[in-house]
Amino acid sequence: MNARRWTAGLLATVAAVALSACSAKNAEETCATSGGIVECAPDQRSAPPKLAGELLTGGDHDVARDRGQVVVVNFWGSWCNPCRAEADDLEATYQQTKGTGVTFLGINVQDNRDKAKAFERGFGITYPSLFDPGSKLALALDIPPNTIPATLVLDREGRIAAVIRAAVTREGLQPIVERIAAESPAPTGER
């Protein structure tokens, strides 16, 4: 590759990253932030993010198929001690809320597939996880998680309603999930 093409490619990459960071900062600035939790009111939420890929156990999943449900998305790794600490609370919240139109999806990052599967078996995780060793899905979000673990709560339209940039507890997560699940969906055409 010649120097001119390399420089042009580098400049294009820098511009894309800068624009992405700018739009993420703008999206986050319109939302309320407190104690590592970003919550966006329905009229402040941006378009649904694309979260799709290969499941840890095989097959594919696209979160767009979950529209109409609240989706709790947890970014985790088997190497992460806070992820271990929150695993039981995530599963308990999933079990408590799944009958109310709420589903969960894990996104395993920077990990080895076998270690990640062993982590899920060891903690009795029953909801699916996408396998994203390069953390590409997090980088594409308007409001990035910025930490591992991190948890997003998507509203019934698939938009980011909350981002929690720390390990969660059932007592902290469940009220947020229930509050978002209780929101009325926007009438068609008001997105």
Rank of each mutant, 00 (worst) to 15 (best):
N2C: 03
R5W: 06
W6Y: 10
A8M: 04
A12M: 10
A12H: 08
V14M: 14
A15M: 10
V17A: 12
A18T: 11
A24N: 09
N26A: 15
N26E: 14
A27T: 13
I37V: 15
I37W: 04
V38T: 14
V38D: 03
D43F: 02
Q44H: 15
S46E: 05
A47F: 05
L51A: 03
A52S: 15
T57K: 04
H61M: 11
D62N: 15
V63G: 02
A64W: 13
R65T: 15
D66A: 15
V70C: 01
G77Y: 11
P82R: 13
P82A: 13
A85Y: 05
A85E: 14
D88F: 09
A92M: 07
Q95F: 08
Q96L: 07
Q96W: 01
K98M: 07
G99K: 00
G101P: 09
F104Q: 00
F104Y: 14
N108K: 02
V109S: 02
V109H: 02
D111F: 06
D111L: 05
K115S: 13
K115R: 15
A118F: 07
A118L: 08
G124H: 13
T126F: 14
T126I: 10
P133H: 07
S135I: 07
K136H: 05
A140S: 11
A140K: 11
D142P: 05
I143K: 01
P144C: 12
I148Q: 02
I148N: 00
I148D: 01
A150Q: 08
A150F: 07
V153N: 00
D155Q: 07
R156T: 12
I160A: 09
A162I: 03
R165K: 14
R170S: 12
R170V: 04
R170L: 07
E171F: 10
A181D: 11
P187V: 06
T188G: 13
E190K: 04
